[in-house]
Design a protein around this nucleic acid. Structure first.
Lengths: 193, 193
DNA sequence: AAAATTAGACTAACCATTTAGTTTAATTTT
DNA sequence: AAAATTAAACTAAATGGTTAGTCTAATTTT
């Protein structure tokens, strides 16, 4: 594989994540990647195709993250998955930014992605296991509770700029550790009892 | 007040909410608003200024929404505020869309807004009241629980397209009613007991 | 009369895309 | 092994559509 192509993809991810599709400039991507603009068109047909390539790449990586919980109880495993979700968002800030735009931009790109929702599915199937073996409490609409739990976690990362001030002047790591505790408490209180 | 100015602001809100700042076109706004393009520049210095005017307008309206809970207990009042939050997001889809972009776009515009967080503040002060009179349970980091609760509600609206499918083939009103029940359950389990 | 609005041509900058070519390294032919 | 050929990777510069913003002169509204 050519070095240029990889570099273009990396740089484009940053640019698209930060400025959005319409705000991104091919010229700037080329300059940042240290390649000639035409090389982008050599590897990708158009800006649109570059965008979808970037997105597919990203979501593929996201989907390949293996989450095989190792706990002995459903409770442990659920907490592990959720913690994993948190870490994933924390370590992949581009994912959140791209995801946020992607939901709005061309629905075709987004709908053709298969792996948007591994975390939802894993939490759900783990929860259903918990209901079966009596560990979890039964709720009428588990999908709604799970969306709420994932959303609560996601929201902090997607609206970091707006939210951060509520936590005062402590380090990011401290906030994450607080959020982790809260998240565990939420899982316990909402899905168990 | 001039009729044109109002119409321009309304139309711009839609355009900016749907396409984002960079994706929006002044020509299109003028056409949709049924006014001449020059009129936009008669009222607003530039696209950027139009954008900030639209945003300030929107957040001003959002802040002016009076939330004066009428319940007899802190529990009732908290639930009322949260339900109000949900209704507000449901009825003002533009708000969510603008908010989402706004967090990313020019930080100056966003940081100069005073009223981003009325809901956070009202929930927080109501909760503190509940702690004082013994209705609510004490938690180490109430700000984190409140962010999580608001986030759980917000997430559904901001990522509607990605999430909707988890609820199957039921009407939007039904989903909202399910979400309302879940939200109440969450408030009860997280802030009380 | 002053403020609001229209018509629409105009411009300058911007920006995605193309064209026409070069470089490099590997493969084939002589 | 030298010469010829190929294909892929890459580049500099041009092209042309798009778009924010302007200008002028006239008309309508308050």
């Amino acid at each position: 594989m050519s070095h240029g192509r990889e570099k273009i993809l990396q740089t484009s991810l940053q640019e698209f994540a930060e400025k959005g599709y319409d705000g991104s400039r091919i010229d700037y991507i080329a300059k940042s990647a240290g390649v000639n603009k035409a090389l982008i068109y050599y590897h990708f047909k158009s800006k649109e195709e570059l965008y979808t390539a970037v997105i597919n790449d990203l979501f593929e990586k996201a989907a390949s993250v293996s989450i095989t919980p190792t706990g002995t109880s459903v409770r442990d495993n659920l907490l592990q998955i959720m913690e994993h979700f948190m870490h994933f968002l924390h370590e992949n800030p581009f994912f959140v930014k791209i995801m946020d735009q992607c939901v709005k931009h061309s629905r075709d790109i987004f709908n053709n992605l298969h792996h948007q929702n591994i975390f939802f599915e894993r939490v759900m199937s783990m929860y259903l296991l918990g209901v079966q073996n009596g560990e979890c409490r039964k709720v009428d609409h588990p999908e709604d509770f799970i969306v709420s739990l994932l959303g609560a976690v996601y929201f902090y990362f997607s609206h970091h700029k707006a939210i951060r001030k509520f936590y005062g002047d402590i380090s990011e790591e401290e906030v994450i550790s607080i959020r982790k505790r809260t998240m565990k408490d939420m899982v316990s209180r909402l899905l168990f009892s």
